[in-house]
Nucleic acid binder design. Structure first.
Lengths: 107, 107
DNA sequence: TTGACATATCGAAAAAAATCGATATATAAT
DNA sequence: ATTATATATCGATTTTTTTCGATATGTCAA
């Protein structure tokens, strides 16, 4: 994975709400029952959850959650797909896997 | 699991100097040639480096480095051994190993 | 006991991050 | 075109973190 900045990753993980979001997104269907309600069947955004649903669960303001997600994406932890007026965020599993490897060998 | 607070750990890792210290301490004899100079042979503080040596390499004030080390110890990353007027810090490898495991399974 | 040295802690100032409401932008629906 | 909805960004304030110098504590050596 290109461009990993460990400091940015650790900063993104240094907040309870952000850490929760990352963990909720491991099992989106469990934590976000309404997941994908807006999506027609032919569009597949596997594991992605829209900002509004995340905000509701996170119990923070819309702008705060939007900024959290942006921060986590910049760090590499998340990736986003836009579909219509919604932005779906999901974990970047490939990155997170490499991160675990980095952690094991470099930390 | 030994009393791990992920947020505190990630905060401790969210700083370049602290991250450097942790990595320097993987190979103390390489990064701190004077390591253990004060110790009589019969005392073994394997892998530990005293605050002054770390401070010199980290290029920050004495109080800052002392606080860094304290913070990393509270987070679980380091452990300290006091010998006379010196405090030797070394990595808590057991904790760090568990941390890597946590990372792999929980993040 | 005194002086020197290593480290820890305190208190304050400066820098950075968190957080929000307001507003902008983009898309969708009518 | 107009309106509604979802998300992003801006600007400002509050909160937290960083960082230091000063000082306290603890240990050693003479």
């Amino acid at each position: 994975m290109l461009n990993m900045e460990p400091i940015d990753v650790f900063k993104a993980l240094s907040n309870e709400t952000r850490l929760n979001i990352l963990q909720w997104l491991k099992e989106p269907e469990k934590h976000f029952p309404k997941q994908g309600a807006h999506l027609p069947k032919e569009v597949s955004i596997k594991g992605g959850v829209c900002v509004g649903d995340i905000q509701e669960k996170a119990d923070a303001s819309q702008s705060t959650v939007s900024q959290y997600l942006n921060m986590m994406q910049k760090a590499g932890l998340l990736e986003s797909v836009r579909y219509g007026q919604w932005t779906y965020y999901r974990r970047n599993e490939e990155f997170i896997l490499q991160l675990a490897e980095y952690f094991k060998t470099e930390i």
